[in-house]
Structure formats: C-alpha cells, structure tokens
Amino acid sequence: MSLTSHLHELKKKHQNISNHVEALQRSPATDDLEIAKLKKQKLMLKEEINRLTAH
C-alpha cells in the first residue's frame, strides 16, 4: 500500500469516527464511555496522520 493510499484510508477512518461521535452525542441515550473510546481512536488516527505527513 502506498503512503498516499494509506493516508487516505486513515483520513477516511478519522472522518467516519467523527461522524459516529457526532451522532452518538445527538442521541438521548448516549454512552459516555463509548464516546470517550471513539474520541481516543480519533486522536490516535490524527496523530498517525500528522506523523506520516510531517516527513
């Protein structure tokens, strides 16, 4: 997998998680633990994207 396609996949995953978090936050029966886990995954993806694009 090329770096460009890998970055594209990471960005796509990041956006999907972001959309999921937003949907959960709008839901009346939100699971705060689930939201926290998703936000942590989102942050890890963002850090990986930044690390790969810094070179």
Score class of each variant (00 low, 15 high):
residue 19 N to Q: 07
residue 41 Q to S: 12
residue 36 A to Q: 09
residue 46 K to F: 03
residue 26 R to A: 11
residue 38 L to Q: 02
residue 15 Q to P: 00
residue 22 E to Q: 11
residue 21 V to P: 09
residue 37 K to I: 11
residue 32 D to P: 07
residue 23 A to M: 04
residue 47 E to R: 10
residue 53 T to F: 01
residue 6 H to M: 15
residue 45 L to F: 10
residue 54 A to D: 08
residue 17 I to R: 03
residue 22 E to L: 11
residue 55 H to F: 09
residue 32 D to R: 13
residue 5 S to H: 12
residue 12 K to S: 11
residue 29 A to T: 07
residue 9 E to K: 06
residue 54 A to Q: 08
residue 23 A to G: 12
residue 42 K to H: 08
residue 28 P to N: 01
residue 45 L to D: 07
residue 31 D to S: 03
residue 11 K to D: 11
residue 41 Q to H: 12
residue 41 Q to M: 13
residue 25 Q to G: 06
residue 41 Q to V: 07
residue 10 L to V: 04
residue 13 K to S: 09
residue 38 L to W: 01
residue 32 D to E: 11
residue 40 K to N: 13
residue 30 T to Q: 15
residue 20 H to V: 03
residue 44 M to E: 15
residue 10 L to A: 04
residue 37 K to H: 15
residue 50 N to R: 06
residue 43 L to R: 14
residue 42 K to G: 10
residue 46 K to T: 00
residue 26 R to K: 14
residue 51 R to K: 08
residue 45 L to T: 06
residue 5 S to N: 10
residue 37 K to V: 14
residue 34 E to Y: 05
residue 40 K to F: 12
residue 3 L to S: 13
residue 28 P to C: 01
residue 54 A to L: 07
residue 49 I to Y: 02
residue 42 K to N: 10
residue 17 I to A: 03
residue 31 D to Q: 02
residue 43 L to Q: 14
residue 18 S to Y: 08
residue 1 M to E: 15
residue 10 L to Y: 06
residue 20 H to P: 02
residue 42 K to A: 12
residue 3 L to I: 14
residue 8 H to Q: 15
residue 45 L to P: 04
residue 6 H to E: 15
residue 39 K to T: 06
residue 48 E to N: 03
residue 25 Q to H: 10
residue 49 I to C: 05
residue 3 L to N: 13
residue 16 N to W: 00
residue 21 V to N: 05
residue 20 H to I: 01
residue 14 H to I: 05
residue 53 T to H: 01
residue 16 N to K: 07
residue 27 S to L: 04
residue 43 L to H: 13
residue 34 E to G: 06
residue 41 Q to G: 02
residue 3 L to Q: 13
residue 24 L to R: 09
residue 8 H to R: 14
residue 4 T to Q: 14
residue 17 I to M: 05
residue 3 L to W: 08
residue 34 E to N: 08
residue 31 D to F: 00
residue 13 K to F: 05
residue 27 S to P: 01
